[in-house]
Design a protein around this nucleic acid. Structure first.
Lengths: 200, 200
DNA sequence: ATAAAAAAATACCTGTTAGTATGTTTATGT
DNA sequence: ACATAAACATACTAACAGGTATTTTTTTAT
């Protein structure tokens, strides 16, 4: 039992450090050596727990990246309350509240989508799965908003959902090119106006 | 004179092959050896014309990537005609007309933004420069549309411009995760509705 | 024709990479 | 207590990376 705890702890440590390095320097630029240097463990420890770099990449996507999107963008959509208000709150507030570090490094998911999203089918599938979850939750909320009469009945839930997600991921990338938030402020203004148009 | 032509030809060949490989496999995953294998020339030829990988990266950005965005998304905005119609045409049509290859590999600029946009100041600047040109041209066109009464006077040109660009780049990344165009069709529906809202 | 310079090729160097083979330490079940 | 297996460490390999040094080939100006 003590052994299992130790194993779980080590695996979690490796995943956490791997996520940070992938986020800061990219997936391809991060070596197994660099990850294990961060954990203060050896390469032997890594290959005892994971079978390849691809393996840890998939673990990071499904455990860390997905968790981040679920907690930051999906679960908040499922709360009770006015559907329109929830969308505004989640999209606008999340963008406003990113740390400097997060703004500088962009969206971990979007970074991976653009760096390795079309290189290997397994990465593609793991990342697509996150987008699908997000898209589905947002579509459901918009449907609810139409039903509860806080969102216009004429809008297409699918269309609004993918349009919102695309815009959000897009600005997260573009912001990486700047040293200030001007571009985010303009974006927020555009987003607010857009949301006004789907409001009932 | 013959020598200069030869030199120019070789440099262009290297840039073209480098662009294709960066686009298909990413910047970091593309080696100088791989580029020169494509040109059927030697490494010596590469280092005769360029001083480093960073050097060719910047050349590809400012000559190939920028050209692509300018020709595909910026110059078409500057044509004569109804401003609103031009925006619809450029954004909708361009997205519809991408080849399978282009849809699969995403936007070369967006790929680079997310892969190396925050690693080196020189890359950041070169890529930011393209975004700024695009943003400026779009803002100008929206202003013209307001003046000519094809676009609502209440909208913020800056806000609409960055919102449109973000959404466009965002969907180009997300599309990489899929094997079909469903996500693009939904996006186009969302984009059309959005544009309807800024129409006078 | 020939010297100088540009273009390109060859061979190499040093560091890094993912991954393996093999050993040592630590926990576990009997 | 002891055999077994898991956890981890050490040392290595083979391929590949970016870059350099040096030589050969081609062009150009005189």
């Amino acid at each position: 039992m003590q052994q299992e705890l130790k194993s779980d702890f080590t695996k979690q440590l490796i995943i956490d450090k791997a996520f940070s390095l992938f986020y800061e320097n990219g997936f391809k630029s991060t070596s197994i050596d660099a990850i294990m240097r961060e954990t203060s463990l050896s390469k032997g420890a890594f290959y005892h727990h994971y079978k390849s770099k691809k393996d840890i990449g998939l673990e990071v996507i499904s455990l860390k990246v997905e968790k981040r999107v679920v907690e930051g963008m999906i679960l908040p959509l499922m709360k009770k309350g006015n559907a329109y208000d929830i969308i505004v709150k989640v999209f606008i507030n999340r963008l406003k509240e990113f740390s400097f570090y997060d703004k500088q490094h962009g969206c971990p998911m979007n970074n991976l989508i653009n760096e390795i999203g079309n290189t290997e089918a397994v990465y593609q599938k793991a990342l697509r799965n996150i987008i699908e979850q997000w898209k589905y939750a947002l579509e459901q909320l918009i449907e609810r908003g139409k039903y509860e009469n806080s969102i216009k009945k004429e809008v297409s839930s699918k269309a609004v959902a993918i349009y919102l997600i695309s815009a959000f991921e897009g600005i997260r990338g573009i912001r990486k090119l700047y040293d200030n938030d001007v571009v985010i402020e303009d974006f927020l203004s555009g987003l607010s106006s857009y949301l006004e148009q789907i409001r009932v």
